[in-house]
Design a protein around this nucleic acid. Structure first.
Lengths: 189, 189
DNA sequence: GTCTATAGAGTGATAGAC
DNA sequence: GTCTATCACTCTATAGAC
């Protein structure tokens, strides 16, 4: 009998897929056991808090990925146009060019929102604040920078939603191109 | 026995509130009976198809509202800047200045999406097509008009999502102001 | 009697917790 | 695997209007 020693961290990406596909309520424990290959016993061993803790772990991993792959580069890159282009490129690959939804966004619009309100707010706040700071460092005043940051994050989330609603991922691709071009309009040298 | 003469149509706005508050899965029959004041007998009398039919009725009423209050005015107004300003004003009041989510958008990102995919797609298609046609009539070519329409609908949906995620309705108000100003930038005489 | 509207006990299925 | 709670839904009973 071959044992695979799955760690807690190995399970999280699988959980992420299940929640993305079924939503929080729709991800039944049986769907989770089916997709992870773990029995309920193992799941409750890794996540004593049950489904809530599983979703929290997934949201935490998403936070970490964005911190590392989006926020940190935004902070260190000095040319705002490069910074934004890199961000959009990272976002494009993360969301599979519009074929994958934003789990945090989906949670924000769902009935589970209250349960995860803090994590959701933190995600969007970190993103808008980091982008806004980056824009401000390029010479715009605070409220103008904040407005552009909101336009970008809202534009990305709205494009993901619209792509999903229209069942056409190209909507997302087009939105990213517009957002990229827009930064060159704002900062033309 | 005292009769209250509730009609099917009177129930739909109440259902709309319940679905908006709890989502589709989260809106349990007991929550629905509590909020509508109707027993299961009455509900199944009005909606023999059960919860699915209740949600369909709500989505249908939303469609009708937008057709009447947003799409029709877009078609008849010739000045695109007035048309867009009127649309944004209607949208602002419909979504309670960012305090209310778009049920269709929420469904689009939820696990119930597949069940209502047709209605969801129709809603977003009707909106983007109507707006795009309106812009095209003002002199832009087809793909440019379509891009702007997607920017607007995506911007509205994204701003609603972001306002919800950040728990700050002003995010939505600011987005509407930007979108209104943007049309004046595009069509400056 | 017939029709419409109502309430709610009871059904089997399935949920998440453990 | 077992547990209890809750789910959507069915069905019976009952009310008044005509």
């Amino acid at each position: 009998m071959s044992r695979t020693f799955l760690e807690r961290e190995d399970v999280i990406p699988l959980l992420s897929e299940v929640f993305r596909e079924h939503g929080y309520d729709g991800a039944s424990l049986s769907a989770i056991t089916a997709h992870t290959g773990l029995g309920k016993g193992s799941l409750y061993h890794f996540f004593p808090g049950g489904k809530k803790e599983m979703a929290d772990a997934v949201l935490g991993e998403i936070e970490n990925w964005f911190e590392e792959s989006v926020f940190a580069p935004l902070r260190s890159e000095t040319d705002i146009r490069h910074a934004v282009a890199s961000m959009l490129s990272a976002v494009d690959s993360y969301f599979h060019s519009g074929g994958r939804i934003c789990l945090v966004g989906a949670f924000a619009l769902s009935n589970t929102r209250d349960q995860f309100a803090l994590r959701i707010r933190h995600y969007f706040q970190a993103w808008t604040d980091t982008l806004s700071d980056s824009i401000e460092r390029s010479g715009l005043d605070h409220s103008a920078a904040r407005a552009i940051a909101e336009e970008y994050i809202g534009g990305i989330q709205g494009a993901l939603l619209l792509a999903r609603g229209l069942d056409d991922p190209l909507v997302f691709t087009r939105a990213l191109h517009r957002l990229n071009a827009r930064m060159n309009d704002i900062f033309r040298n």
